[in-house]
């Protein structure tokens, strides 16, 4: 798109005078600026003592959400592990013990070292079961320790909800379409799109 000439501002190179040629006045001016910076208040946050104020959409450690009855919300649809560009989500599905869904995850493991924290799993999830939290200080002593399983991910949910920093970002608090049993006679694309 061409820039209209009225938006273009031509800046002339400033003409150097005696003060600039002597260097010293300019250096003194610079020193005053430098000195002012020294006494300015510092913006450093001293991390372990001072926790950073992260926005709610920060992409940190994952959690698996619970529903109202405290069960895992996940329906083992594999959407997140399919969407994951780093292939860090490993799900083993099993027939659900609950009547409201067909499957549930028997194991749900995220390799937190492999994850790139892109948030695509959160986008892909049809039932808002997986979410990224504002937990940012993820540390561990071994690689095994950093493989977060279902219990660990659920405990992250308990922890973050208790802390109050990460409210559940669900749609109306109920399971989405992916958890419903397929209607008789096959799935129609239109009904999925409407609901």
């Amino acid at each position: 798109m061409p820039v209209p000439p009225s938006d273009i501002r031509w800046v002339e190179e400033p003409k150097l005078g005696l003060a600039e040629m002597l260097y010293l006045p300019s250096i003194a001016q610079g020193m005053i600026t430098t000195m002012k910076r020294i006494v300015q208040p510092k913006i450093t946050q001293e991390f372990p003592e001072q926790r950073p104020q992260l926005p709610a959409n920060y992409r940190g450690v994952h959690r698996l959400n619970r529903d109202e009855q405290g069960r895992v919300r996940c329906v083992a649809c594999y959407m997140c592990s399919t969407a994951c560009p780093a292939h860090c989500i490993d799900i083993v599905a099993a027939p659900s013990p609950w009547p409201d869904r067909e499957k549930y995850p028997e194991t749900f493991v995220i390799d937190e070292l492999r994850c790139i924290y892109c948030g695509m799993c959160e986008q892909a999830c049809p039932v808002d079961a997986i979410e990224l939290t504002t937990l940012c200080d993820l540390t561990g002593f071994s690689r095994e320790e950093m493989m977060f399983d279902k219990e660990k991910l659920l405990s992250v949910f308990d922890q973050t909800v208790q802390r109050g920093t990460d409210p559940v970002r669900t749609r109306g608090g109920r399971l989405g379409v992916a958890s419903e049993l397929p209607p008789e006679g096959g799935v129609t694309t239109s009904s999925t799109a409407q609901s």
């Binding site: 430098t34 910076r37 020294i38």
Partner: peptide, 10 residues
Amino acid sequence: KISAWLQERL
């Protein structure tokens, strides 16, 4: 330290 103070660090 001085470099840090000039850059508003600690």
